[in-house]
Write a protein that binds this DNA or RNA. Sequence first.
DNA 1: GATTGCTTGACTTATGTTGACCATACAATA
DNA 2: TATTGTATGGTCAACATAAGTCAAGCAATC
Lengths: 159, 159
Amino acid sequence: MSSLTKSIEAYIVSLFEEATQDEISLRRKDIAEKFGCVPSQINYVLRSRFAPEHGFIVSSQRGGNGYIRIMQLRFNNCEERLVHFEDLVGNVMSEQESRRLLASLQNRSILSARERILMEVALRKQDEIARSTYDIPPYRRDLQRAELMKSLLRSLALA
Amino acid sequence: MSSLTKSIEAYIVSLFEEATQDEISLRRKDIAEKFGCVPSQINYVLRSRFAPEHGFIVSSQRGGNGYIRIMQLRFNNCEERLVHFEDLVGNVMSEQESRRLLASLQNRSILSARERILMEVALRKQDEIARSTYDIPPYRRDLQRAELMKSLLRSLALA
DNA sequence: GATTGCTTGACTTATGTTGACCATACAATA
DNA sequence: TATTGTATGGTCAACATAAGTCAAGCAATC
């Protein structure tokens, strides 16, 4: 008694298996018809199963000749190491720890200099906003930081 | 299958490939005739596909011997590129605009797939927190997004 | 029983295409 | 020189076609 969402997910995965590229394109309306559901169901599947954190990028266009395009990101064997570091992050991460981790990842050539900078900027910006705009106390910022760090690592690790 | 707009876009891109310069010139009327469409369709293609955010500048002249000239932007140094990005982003940026910009930057090989996904995750996370945790209204999220986008681009331009 | 995940449909927003009408540059002519 | 004609390109609004959002209700799981 597989759910609709799982069926649609499986179907989309099968499209990737057939495809020669890491990218497929589909019509929301067609898929909805194929599964006899409402079109917005497709959005739910995409949001819950094909998010960047799962290694996919979804882009779309409305209007005439509209489409939904799903790219599967495949990176070179960083997977295990990054997944490991994701565990290492845990639920809480201080600013210091985050800097150290990024430096270490760059040293081991798991991140390029540019990738590290992007992550550093993202972390710093988030922290800045949390602190100065919303007055979030340090501990909750450490939670948020760990969240963001994990999302970023996950996006690079999963393919 | 492929839309009229895409065909015209592809044709114009092919003109650039043939050209020796970073600049091409065309007659709106001629292109419209070639594709059997109304002339204003060309304006639509230019507006949606050859805007500055895609790295082009369009100038034109009306009247007898009128023309449309399309220049492909080239940056000589980081500074120029940075200024261009800041202009492009401005103070406000919708989620859509941000996604489109990232797609365009990746297409132009200004960003790698990994860099793009990092940026996408950072933007999404920030937005998610602003929306669901702090209940920030859309306009202020657009301000924040522009800020983050500029910070990320700035860091890369200088890297 | 409460929380989380799934499904639906009404409403919103974006894109592509067309045509009517407007603006401008140049040239011929008065 | 001033006027007018002709050849361009520009703008905008209407319409068709897709996709996105959101909240409410239902189902599954803890």
